[in-house]
Design a protein around this nucleic acid. Structure first.
Lengths: 342, 342
DNA sequence: CAGAAAATTTAAAACGATTTAAAAAATAGC
DNA sequence: GCTATTTTTTAAATCGTTTTAAATTTTCTG
């Protein structure tokens, strides 16, 4: 219809007032007379005025947009099953607050840091939710500690940084303990990459559970892999190849657990009779494999919500009392461990 | 460090030229002298100048940002397994072209259309990739036909509109024909919602395959459901309840197929011996169920790439020769149909 | 070396809003 | 009715760029 877009000036002209008044009126400023406000609102309505947000952003120095940044490494892409839930949680909160969401993958780790500076300083977003990354990634470090509003999804060593993290350690502990209580003694841990905090924490939880139950930790039972299904499959193959005996598997995530399940089936090892398997994440897929996977549930959507809420609070200068939040995980018992009971 | 952000004026001052020259120099305009250009570049480097993109956008009337919009209905959320692949394809192309991605869910269908106008006219994005929606959704109609740069993911009746669509009809035809060739005669179709074009096309493909092979179409063998796993499960339950006999199931998507598989197993019906099952989508999950699901593969990532490429071409005023692209699907034979061969 | 032409630089006007400080209008006080 | 005060309105500056057209400098020609 009206192609040349309607600006605040057009509204001003129709309403017979100045642009300043229109701005004030539409923003609900107390200074403008009630009668004038109605006049302006009518004019805006009639012209179907929609403010140009770029103009607004420039002057107001705020874009009402936040970025969700996912490090672009092989095991941190969109395809991660829980990614969409995280995203769902984030968008719910943003929608409620009329914020926009920008999605970014960071350039690969090696990339010059300029790319990061750009994200921080081109003024396109007011704040950032940053998905966890390799602990070796210096760029992430700079980003988090730049002073730019960031909520980091994971553990951070500096306690002024806003974070939302899962209780990886606790979850791993529960998983391992569950296996121990079922009488398992030789528990394999297929670990995620140990340059990622999740990998480290889950391994720690596993170790501590063993310790607390007086089971000797044996290094050969731990295999470091990359969180993919194939990795889980390969891990079991490796163990078989070096003839390591085991009666349980705690995988660092569900995908690896499912890969392991597959390999065990191929080898005619019965799950749960001969070997118990526990995963971590509780992705959808865990309920369609056979046997259904016992796993650690993590509320990704809630994590997304919390992160977004925390960031918005910070952006609106509200005091964020709990700078670092830890959301708890819990064990979901299904079929892959034997003993239907808890 | 330098907190008050560096602007083009600062660079100009350091380089001893005017802001205009800086702009020209950094944009690689042929008019500026080589010596001056180096001077400017050095100054920019030294001050670590990063252009304020909001300022740029305002003047240039282009944001180098596009939106990916997902209608916010129960069966069109992020959680759809192929969503992340679509997103991956889109971001790949955008990254290569230095475009940004904004993610939006549209307000629910009932919402006043103002929300849509806002997306189109607040100037935050230059173009839109629009995920398919209910064919009844008037707002989507307005959006696509507004003249704003849009690529629609699905079929559109008006051939000036840019689209990328899957060959749903062809895929369904192949799936059904495969079942027929295996000797199946009473083929159930668990359909997706028939107010969505995908649902319609897949049903049509199914019908046509039956027709071409002289099998009578029977309405009771078609059940309209909502694309969820539960729906597939329920569909089989319903058929059992009304004692409808059948020897094959073509589900409108993999999730429903997997739900169906589950129910059949619960009923002790053997797949593929007693009943063959085919899905549609080829999601990851299709390879972890037992029996593994035969399905129709659709290259979602490629669709994402094509959509992004098409939109960018359009935005850069390149002639888009193929306004409507149809990407083909193909049958992936696994275990759920019997007859390992094609 | 003057004058024309070409190459380079820059001032100033956008882009579309918000906000501040000043101006104008309305109301109050006496 | 005339100040003083309060309420409303507005002009103008500003945010950080890009771009146009004009100004300036340099190079070329004869």
């Amino acid at each position: 219809m009206s192609h040349g877009n309607v600006t605040i000036k057009d509204v001003a002209k129709i309403a017979g007032v100045s642009p300043a008044t229109v701005s004030l009126a539409l923003s609900g400023d107390a200074r403008v007379n009630e009668k004038t406000r109605r006049l302006v609102e009518e004019a805006a309505q009639r012209l179907n005025y929609i403010p140009n947000e770029i103009g607004r952003s420039l002057r107001a120095k705020s874009t009402e947009t936040i970025a969700f940044i996912i490090p672009n490494t092989s095991h941190h892409v969109f395809s991660h099953p829980y990614f969409s839930q995280l995203l769902e949680g984030i968008t719910e909160v943003l929608d409620d607050n009329n914020y926009n969401l920008m999605l970014s993958t960071t350039p690969s780790e090696k990339e010059e840091s300029a790319a990061y500076d750009k994200i921080l300083r081109n003024r396109r977003v007011d704040g950032i939710i940053l998905s966890s990354a390799s602990i070796k990634d210096k760029n992430i470090l700079r980003m988090v500690e730049s002073g730019f509003p960031v909520v980091y999804l994971g553990k951070w060593h500096h306690d002024e940084v806003l974070t939302v993290e899962r209780d990886d350690y606790g979850g791993a502990y529960q998983a391992t303990e569950h296996l121990i209580r079922l009488g398992r003694k030789r528990i394999v841990h297929i670990s995620g990459p140990l340059d990622h905090q999740e990998g480290i924490d889950r391994l720690e939880g596993y170790k501590q559970a063993l310790l607390d139950h007086k089971i000797l930790y044996e290094a050969p039972l731990v295999i470091e892999k990359d969180f993919s299904r194939q990795a889980g499959y390969d891990a079991i193959a490796e163990l078989a190849h070096r003839q390591t005996a085991f009666d349980a598997v705690f995988a660092g995530n569900d995908l690896m657990a499912i890969g392991a399940l597959k390999r065990l089936k191929d080898m005619q090892v019965r799950v749960p009779q001969d070997v118990s398997v526990v995963g971590f994440d509780d992705i959808d897929m865990a309920t369609v494999v056979s046997p259904m996977l016992t796993t650690i549930h993590q509320p990704m959507r809630q994590i997304g919500r919390m992160a977004a809420e925390k960031l918005l609070a910070h952006l609106n200068n509200q005091e964020v009392t709990e700078k670092q939040s830890v959301v708890s995980t819990h064990l979901v018992v299904r079929e892959s461990c034997g003993a239907g009971s808890g």
